[in-house]
Design a protein around this nucleic acid. Sequence first.
RNA 1: GGUCGAUUAGCUCAGCGGUAGAGCACUACGUUGACAUCGUAGGGGUCACUGGUUCGAUCCCAGUAUCGACCACCA
Length: 916
Amino acid sequence: MLDQFFNAAEAEEQIYKRWEEAGCFKPSMDTSAEAYAIVIPPPNVTGVLHMGHALNNTLQDILIRFARMQGKNVLWQAGTDHAGIATQMVVERQLAEAGGNESRASLGREAFVDRVWGWKEESGGKIVGQLKRLGASCDWSRLRFTMGERGVEDDQMQAAVRKVFVDLYNDGLIYRDKRLVNWDPHFQTAISDLEVEPKEVKGHYWHLRYPLADGVTYEHPVFDEDGEPAGTETRDYIVVATSRPETMLGDTGVAVHPDDERYKDLVGKDVILPIVNRRIPIVADEYPDPEKGSGAVKITPAHDFNDFDVGKRCGLEVMNILTSIAAIVDGDEADTAAIPAEYRGLDRFEARKKVVAHFEDNDLMQEIESLKIEQPFGDRSGVVIEPWLTDQWYVNAKELAKEAIAAVQDNRTRFVPENWEKTYYNWMNDIQPWCVSRQLWWGHRIPVWYGPNGEVYCAMSEAEAQAQAGEGVPLTQDNDVLDTWFSSALWPFSTLGWPGETDELKTFYPGAVLVTAFDIIFFWVARMMMQGLQFMKEIPFKDVYIHALVLDEKGQKMSKSKGNVMDPLDLIDEYGADALRFSLASQAAQGRNIRLSTKRIEGYRNFTTKLWNAAKFCQMNECANWNGPVDPSRVKEPVNQWIIGEVARTGEAVAKAIEGYRFNEASDAIYRFTWNVFCDWYLELIKPLLNGEDAEPKAETRRVAGWVLDEILKLLHPFMPFVTEELWEKLSEDGPSRDGFLMMQSWPSYDGFENAEADAEMSWALDFVSEIRGVRGILNVPAGAKPGLAVVNAGTETKKRLERHREVLMRLARLDPVYVDDNVPAGAVSIVLGDATLALKVADLIDQKAEGDRLKKRISGIEKDIGGIEKKLTNEKFLANAPPEIIEEQHTRKANAESERNKLTDALKQLEAIGS
RNA sequence: GGUCGAUUAGCUCAGCGGUAGAGCACUACGUUGACAUCGUAGGGGUCACUGGUUCGAUCCCAGUAUCGACCACCA
């Protein structure tokens, strides 16, 4: 016999182990079955499961389990990501915390990379274990890592990356270029635009005066305190504003708008750049906005993206003043830029202070404005990013994007919800060259070798490069590694064995759907689209389902610094994986974020208990699916006919909702059926049958109840795999034996299971009970009291129904006796149900005034309804334009309402007659 | 500046061109051996505002307000 509660903590691990050992997660490779594949968004190999993972993988698991039960050939491809910067950062920090003398630099490249592999092996299984706790039914035997395997010579994952690089290079789609990049001075690497996070911080605009050379002066307009023009003043300087004053050391020009009257005459003149005493020109360019600031802009081509362009247009010198750690240059470069000794080697922020002090001390500071400014930060390092001039490798994303855009336009790949397409297009249409080289050690090393004079040999291996270069030519490999997303972009096909031609690749590419959050569309989805189309000549997945972000109860992003992080593993410990999964699924409405609260998870934990106890009830009453599938045509009891139809409706609703990625609708449907229909009604309704003497109805009811429970387990399984599997197994201990795991059962389909007559009859019975209960509640009839009930004016149908369900009605509505009568007995409370009036004999139990009030209230409510309907029905336009079925419906509503009103009015009269 | 989304019960959110729903919270009462991690009943809403389309708008359209997200830029 079942215990009182489902012990999630105990059962989950066992169940998962049994599934895995039985090979349930592997694709059937049944060639006659439809293939269904999802590639997991690979989590960072050294990461831990957070709530976003929990949601993402719950949704995927629902889809996967559903597809598997539908008999498809299902692959959920698992794997992890090497996460270049993030992982390198963790290992570097570990070295620092170890407190020894070891650092990345002291170890050297090879030893350091070795350490990272070591750490990967040590911690890499963690997140996989956590995904298992969630119930994720990935095929772990096919686990892949974006870096491939350690020390394997011809590793396929690495070969895939190299082949892509080499092919793109040979097609001219990868090239080396010297231009400004987003430079992260902490990690000392370039990062892509997407890895830069603009943040608003408190800052200043320093308005600097640059003295004009050669004694030039000009008239500059001035304004009074109210901002009114107040003539002009003669100036021998030009004012520029900046939020990064230290960059002035690298200024090589001042730009003004060609139409700016104030400065027109200054174009072509020079200023003397303070501190470095460099003579730099004033140039005219469209870039400066005369409305902003002073209208004059200092130009630092080496350290600002806009300035770089201006400098190019105006032929200004590019003068680097920063080192890779964003300190002021020393040595030759400092000489070129004429940096005074006391500035050389200073950190950028120290230099800033010194520059500001210099301007203040020399009467060169026009104004210091305090305000909030947007500054670029590295998403991993958290330090301010500097635009820096370097050589990097770029992918011509513009070219690759063409097909990726077209594939979405012609619906080969579909975004769900659809509105994300626009986001995708916006970005793709304006895509910038993708900087793919990183000055890190942990990652795929760029497969390029250089000859003695900088000749470039791009090849799959050093041997091939050597062959290209000729024997004996000394070669050195490019030091850089590739952006992590470069290898992630290949995930849908590299995991399936590409560049090899494998069965898996043929079967499972393209995948059915990619499930991810919107913040990854640019990083990953767009790039998989580009690379998939380029190398497989086919889209990587048919659907892209974009799910919500998981926020805390207050709608804030979870973050360590806010201290509002909810750990999915803690929640699994406390409430069970099923409860967490169901909570996430039930809140996964399209287009809205999820606010997670423990209350709600607790509620779904209670749901597992409810299900468990319902199963226990079935078990106690020997309700089991004894004779295989139920044949609806042979079921006789209306209550059983009805519940079979309810199962069918629920099953269809669940399937349809999952297919449309409407996880909340699917979970709601199965939740409501289980709790509000099966438990609240059906199990109560069948108690008399189960306790009764009639063998045939009893046997039928046991069988049907058992069958319904089995169907619930199947329909619920994708959402709550553990508790359903546990019940599936436990119920077989005292019931018919089961054919294998629940997770491998066929998803049910129901044809001809509905029975309109039974539905009508049961809905009458349910209404009967609800109405009586409602009245009892309002009139405060004591729960223990069992008043009698006369059914008045019953037609033959009602009488038949009454006969059939009398026992149940008496029991559920707490009545005794229930009988047919010709007139409403004196002092009874009247309730109208269908053609009959239910007369509840409670005169001695209730307050007559309260009953009078109840009736009056009810009648006035009905009259209001009738008024509304009449208004419609006398409106000619309504009659002329509304569809006939709507008009018909209004007529019916009106007739019903009037009938009810009349009966209640009679009842009220009677009550008043007694009272007086 | 551009784009997208949100505004429905005290809270968190579904929903829909034709009687406004759920969970939680709240109130009352707890019988009947599956379940107190429960049951039954109840209170509570001008569906942000203003216009428009329509026989009919919470729903469609336009505008306004507030909130949020993303992209771009800020010398």
